[in-house]
Each structure stands twice: as structure tokens, then as C-alpha cells.
């Protein structure tokens, strides 16, 4: 049974300037021990999706306009706020891109972990303190007793992110939502953190929803991938399948435009033209059509549904497999 199942989720922001449909029909599920990556460019709705799962958006301006979020046999969208508070941090934990915004600067990191433990488990203070030190040790922090007594600003970026992970995992959640957990970090520290998350996942069997814009990170850790573009899910597949045979021209063009560290450089890259759209002023039809090398007349009028193109591989595109040859079989035909 999936730890989390999101069905046709819709969330929008009603602003003075218009309505931003930041989460527009998102569906996915994650099984225990599985890692689902949600990828997309800045503004594509990744964080909005993550925050919706825990109902963390300010309302207004946010309105959840449809869908369901099923976890532990109930729909989180309709759960009373009091019960929702028990879900957050306990069943489902979240870590954010910038640990400084979610750590309290005037409390020691130890005290913050103790607080989060006591919120969900009625532990005596002494035991909670011991568990907090243990949690810091689990995420590979040396001298955890001493570190527990330090404040966030006394730690490096990588260590703060470890503290966030320690805090998130202290209650042994079934699901960890990690929103760009390594984007602000250097590659060597990123490698440490990704290794740590994989190790903890092995040990505790939790599911991970990893939100990132980095397809390299996706290739490292994901079992399944959901690609978002302009608030919509546009491709969903197993990770190997997605990279081997992307079935949405956007995903494919992204992969083709990226240089690789393991391939000699020097060739002219094949860029995607134009820029990501503004959600307040979306193109009609398929939102990718002004940039798509395969666009047809109907792409400007009809929004393609996310449908299965091959077993376990869905894409939101009018093209069939015959229209879109595999990347190895031929380069993208360039649009005019």
C-alpha cells in the first residue's frame, strides 16, 4: 500500500494580479522505501505541491480547489487541523531548501530537536535529550553532545542540513518530503547528504519525495520521477525509463541541452528556445508549445492530458511514440 497517494490535486493562489494555478492536476503515489523525484524548473509548482501535501500554504491567498491526498487511509485535505498537526513532523516530515529559514536562530539545535520530539511523543525531557543527541549522531555529526548545545549560525551549511534531517527523522516518519535539500550546498557536501538520506532510507524503510530541479540528482537517487512544467505534471515514469526514453518533448529537450561531466565538451549544445512561462499568463493549450520543436497546430488549443504511453510511463503530449523517436535514434527535428 502506498504511503502517500495524491490524486488530481489542485491548488491555486488568488492574487490581486490574477490567479496562479500552481498545482494543476498533480497525481502520484509513493511506496514504502521508494524515492519519488519531482523535477521541474523554478516556478513550476514543486514547492507548492510539497507544501500542499502538508497543507502548509497560507489560506488566503491559497485555495485547495480539488483532489485528494491519501495517507494512512484518510484524506489529508479534509482532515481537521488538530489531527493534521499530528501528521506533520510525525508521519510525514519535511525538510526545506534553506535550513536557516526553518531553524530557530535563538535556540540550540539540540533544544529544537527535543521540542519536535516532545510535540509528537510524550517523552520525559531527559529521554528526549538523549534521543536528540542520538539523532544527531545518526546523521553523521561528530561530537553530537557538543553540537547539540550550539546555535544554527555556529554550523556550516552542510551541518545545518544534517540537523534538519536529524530533526525530520527523529520521529521516524513514514514519509520524508525533501524540498531541494542540497541545492544550496557544494557538490561534495551534496554527495554526503544524498548518501546519508539513502542510508537512512535503507535503515528505516521510509519513503522519500525528493523535490529538485537537478536531473543529475534525480538520476542518482530516484526510483520514480514526476516532471512538472508550469504547474502541471507532464511526464511520470520509472527513473531508468524516463532518462532512456523521455516521452514528453520538454523532458527530452532538457536532457539534450545539458552538458555532462562524463562526456567531453566542446560541441554546440542544443538549447531550448524561449523561457519558462509566467503562470499568470500561460500560453493556451500545451503550455510548452511556444518552445516545443514538435508542436502542431492543435497544441496551441488543447491541453493534452497526462496519459499512459507505455506501461508505467505517462506523458502529457499529443505525440505518439512514432512521432517522437527515441533520443538515440535521432536528434530532435528543430522547429523553424
Amino acid at each position: 500500500m502506498p504511503v502517500l497517494e495524491v490524486n488530481d490535486l489542485h491548488a491555486e493562489f488568488r492574487l490581486d494580479t490574477g490567479t496562479v494555478r500552481a498545482v494543476n492536476g498533480v497525481s502520484f503515489s509513493v511506496e514504502p522505501g521508494q524515492t519519488l523525484a519531482v523535477v521541474g524548473e523554478s516556478g513550476s509548482g514543486k514547492t507548492a505541491t510539497a507544501l500542499s501535501i502538508l497543507r502548509l500554504h497560507p489560506t488566503p491567498p491559497c485555495v485547495y480547489t480539488g483532489g485528494e491526498i491519501v495517507a494512512g487511509g484518510r484524506d489529508l485535505l479534509t482532515l481537521p487541523e488538530r489531527e493534521m498537526r499530528q501528521v506533520r513532523g510525525n508521519e510525514i516530515a519535511m525538510i526545506f531548501q534553506d535550513p536557516m529559514t526553518s531553524l530557530n536562530p535563538v535556540k540550540t539545535v539540540g533544544a529544537q530537536i527535543v521540542e519536535s520530539l516532545r510535540r509528537h511523543r510524550s517523552l520525559p525531557r531527559g529521554e528526549a535529550r538523549a534521543r536528540a543527541v542520538e539523532a544527531l549522531r545518526e546523521v553523521g555529526i561528530a561530537h553530537p553532545e557538543a553540537r547539540a548545545g550550539q546555535y544554527p549560525h555556529q554550523l556550516s551549511g552542510g551541518m545545518r542540513q544534517r540537523v534538519m534531517i536529524a530533526m525530520a527523522l527523529a520521529c521516524r516518519p513514514k514519509l520524508l518530503i525533501a524540498d531541494e535539500p542540497t541545492t544550496a550546498l557544494d557538490v561534495t557536501v551534496q554527495a554526503q547528504i544524498m548518501e546519508l538520506m539513502a542510508d537512512l532510507q535503507d535503515r528505516f524503510g521510509m519513503a522519500i519525495v525528493l523535490i529538485t530541479h537537478d536531473l543529475g540528482v534525480v538520476a542518482q537517487v530516484a526510483d520514480k520521477v514526476l516532471v512538472m512544467y508550469a504547474g502541471r505534471p507532464v511526464e511520470a515514469a520509472g527513473a531508468d525509463d524516463l532518462f532512456e526514453r523521455p516521452r514528453m518533448p520538454y523532458t527530452r529537450a532538457l536532457l539534450e541541452s545539458m552538458p555532462r561531466p562524463d562526456v567531453p565538451g566542446g560541441a554546440v549544445l542544443d538549447p531550448i528556445r524561449g523561457a519558462p512561462p509566467n503562470l499568470l499568463d500561460l500560453p493556451s493549450g500545451c503550455a510548452f508549445h511556444p518552445r516545443c520543436g514538435f508542436a502542431r497546430p492543435e497544441c496551441a488549443s488543447t491541453v493534452p492530458a497526462l496519459e499512459e504511453k507505455a506501461p508505467g510511463h505517462a506523458a502529457a503530449c499529443v505525440l505518439t511514440d512514432d512521432d517522437l523517436p527515441g533520443t538515440s535514434e535521432g536528434r530532435r527535428v528543430s522547429g523553424t
Binding site: V187, T188, Q190, A191, D214, L215, G216, V217, V218, A219, Q220, A222, A239, D240, F243, L255, M258, R260, P261, D262
Partner: peptide
């Protein structure tokens, strides 16, 4: 440590 956008690699 540089990620490669290719699960097999």
C-alpha cells in the same frame, strides 16, 4: 560527486 543525468552511468 558531480551528478550525471543518466541513472546507468
Amino acid at each position: 560527486a558531480a551528478p550525471i543525468a543518466d541513472p546507468k552511468a
